[in-house]
């Protein structure tokens, strides 16, 4: 089974098992502000952190997770009610420390649950534990029918799967219905996605209705899967064209030869013209990735690499020596 990897937009986080301690989140530390910071300072800090970690723009490692934390921290600290409630927990907690809400916290209604990390698949279990609205409302907006947001994820596939089409199983976690305590439960959902033959890197697949669930009975958004190719041991890819480094012996390059070369559909023989040099490109038309929608297939380019033997026998040594004496070839002239 394959996770839709590197979610530039989310699928969802893990589900919290009740009774298991949560990790305390220090929202002030996440935003890099003091506990007494005013609203303006919090907003400024959010903007700075959001620019740094926004998954659409950031190259930072784990940017998506960091951005999610930043959004969650901002959601709490910008809202005076939520901030007051959060501050009631006290400052004696440290980030990552095991946390259980204090007795009586169950009855706290932290005001509006807010947008709940739109498009990032919900906030942490810590946030849910503290601020989830009791009584079945959850994050939904009663009486308000709204289509769910579209989600995006990156799906890494092999070149072979791209060429031939394939089926891949992906796992999504989605907000489900409210549990007995009124908190939204997360549900895992598995899908097998049929990937059409001929997809190329960077293209997107749309899976209708499999994005985030709608609110108030509204339809689900769409799930977009951006195609990424797994590194291939034999081919590099540019668009629909494939490139393969073809190692040949000096005599094959000089005299010409017919050598076996791999393609996505299996090996074929390719003619090496006499007098070929390293770096020359030889094209096998139509042996790249297949075209879609009437587009022509790509080509396979063999990049010649002349390699020499490291260990040679005495006889070979004398033959190379003879060649060196006989040849009028001057590669540096």
């Amino acid at each position: 089974m394959v996770w839709a990897e590197r979610l530039s937009r989310p699928l969802f986080s893990k589900r919290h098992n009740k009774g298991v301690p949560l990790e305390y989140k220090d929202y002030y530390q996440i935003l890099g502000v003091a506990r007494g910071a005013d609203a303006q300072a919090i907003k400024a800090a959010y903007r700075k952190m959001a620019r740094k970690y926004h998954p659409d723009v950031s190259k930072e490692p784990h940017a998506e997770d960091r951005f999610k934390d930043v959004q969650e921290a901002y959601e709490v600290l910008r809202d005076s009610e939520k901030r007051r409630a959060y501050d009631q927990l006290g400052s004696n907690w440290r980030a990552g420390q095991e946390f259980r809400p204090p007795p009586g916290w169950e009855h706290f209604n932290g005001g509006s649950p807010g947008a709940g990390g739109p498009d990032l698949g919900g906030f942490s279990d810590f946030f849910e534990e503290l601020f989830a609205r009791r009584g079945g409302g959850g994050r939904g907006h009663a009486g308000f029918r709204m289509r769910g947001e579209d989600s995006e994820a990156t799906l890494t596939i092999s070149l072979e799967d791209a060429a031939q089409g394939s089926q891949r199983e992906i796992s999504l976690e989605i907000p489900g219905s409210p549990g007995p305590d009124g908190r939204i439960q997360r549900e895992s959902r598995r899908l097998t996605v049929k990937i059409p033959a001929g997809v190329t890197e960077g293209q997107r697949l749309r899976i209708a209705g499999q994005g985030q669930p709608g609110h108030g009975g509204g339809p689900g958004g769409d799930l977009y899967l951006r195609i990424q190719f797994a590194p291939h041991p034999r081919f590099r890819v540019e668009g629909r064209n494939l490139f393969h480094d073809l190692r040949v012996a000096p005599w094959e390059a000089v005299l010409g030869s017919s050598v076996e070369i791999p393609t996505l559909a299996g090996p074929v023989r390719m003619k090496i013209p006499a007098g070929s040099s390293s770096g020359q490109k030889l094209r096998l038309a139509g042996k790249g990735l297949p075209g879609t929608g009437g587009k022509p297939p790509g080509d396979l380019y063999a990049i010649l690499q002349i390699v020499v033997p490291r260990h040679i026998s005495g006889e070979e040594q004398s033959l190379w020596q003879k060649l060196a004496e006989e040849s009028h070839f001057h590669p540096r002239h």
Binding site: Q167, E169, R190, L191, T192, V193, K194, I195, P196, G198, V199, G202, Q203, R204, L205, R206, I207, A208, Q210, Y224, L225, T292, G293
Partner: peptide, 12 residues
């Protein structure tokens, strides 16, 4: 059973 869903290629 895991539902099988046809993905639609978005031609950019």
């Amino acid at each position: 059973p895991v539902p099988v869903i046809e993905a639609e290629l978005v031609e950019d």
